[in-house]
Write a protein that binds this DNA or RNA. Structure first.
Lengths: 135, 135
DNA sequence: CTTGACCTTCCAGTGTGGAGGAAGGTCTAG
DNA sequence: CTAGACCTTCCTCCACACTGGAAGGTCAAG
């Protein structure tokens, strides 16, 4: 199938598919006599795999690693499990960080609704974002 | 004070301070006769303000907006409150997204520990990351 | 007078994941 | 035969927030 059809089937832009090939995420496909790329069904699966892994937060580099295992004929499972667990732990930390920021923002918003602009002190840029005191 | 001292006081690299000036986050400071930058106390506050706002997830563009209000002599409070609330909502969404990803990863990890590499099907790149079925 | 620690400007590159566009080849329909 | 819808390669650029390095000026100590 041509790149446009693959793009339509997977919802991945043709430009992006060529890019994945360039960065060795997708194997170079067969070429028709007119040099058009001619993709097969596994290409569809691989592309879906890439987007799926991406949506789980894996970067293209990690995805390439996983695929490389498979391409060497090894089962990537142990490696993938490791990646999964690492990313899971990273996510937990990141979520915690964001939750703290979000709480801080809510605190600021409450403070902002209580105070009026008249309380602005010229010495500060904005009291709302001044180093937070107790609230 | 020289840029190095400002850097030491605020823990912001001198290079970054020059960068902030270049992108109009920091006002161009006075210059000594030798053309060295000569910062005053408000520069310290502004720099701390920038880093503080940054740690709350504001981008440099948003921070510049806030500062611009102040520099025009207006109280940025209403605008800032709006930004705070928007970012807070964004964060809630983002956190939810990440939490879903993280749950999905945990599910995959559980599955991985139950299955053995022998279960790998050659037709897939890695069954662990295949489109998830019921678990 | 030299050394070393500062400072200056300017130009270029980092990483991530692509997007945009030019110039040109190919295929199908009418 | 021509239009237009594909496809090809190649090159450049985007946001984001810096960071590195070259080449050179300045200043205080010894």
């Amino acid at each position: 199938m041509l790149i446009g059809e693959l793009a339509a089937r997977t919802q991945v832009p043709a430009k992006t598919i060529r890019y994945y090939e360039e960065v060795r995420l997708m194997a170079p496909p067969a070429r028709a006599p007119n040099r058009y790329r001619d993709f097969d069904q596994p290409a569809v699966e691989r592309l879906k795999f890439i987007r799926g892994a991406q949506s789980l937060g894996f970067g293209l580099g990690e995805i390439r690693e996983i695929i490389a295992y498979r391409d060497r004929g090894e089962t990537p499972c142990a490696h993938v499990l490791d990646l999964i667990q690492r990313r899971s732990r990273e996510l937990v930390e990141r979520i915690d960080e964001l939750r703290r920021s979000q709480k801080e923002l809510e605190k600021l918003a409450r403070r902002a609704r209580r105070l009026s602009p008249k309380d602005c002190e010229p010495s500060q840029i904005c009291h709302l974002l001044a180093p937070a005191g107790s609230d």
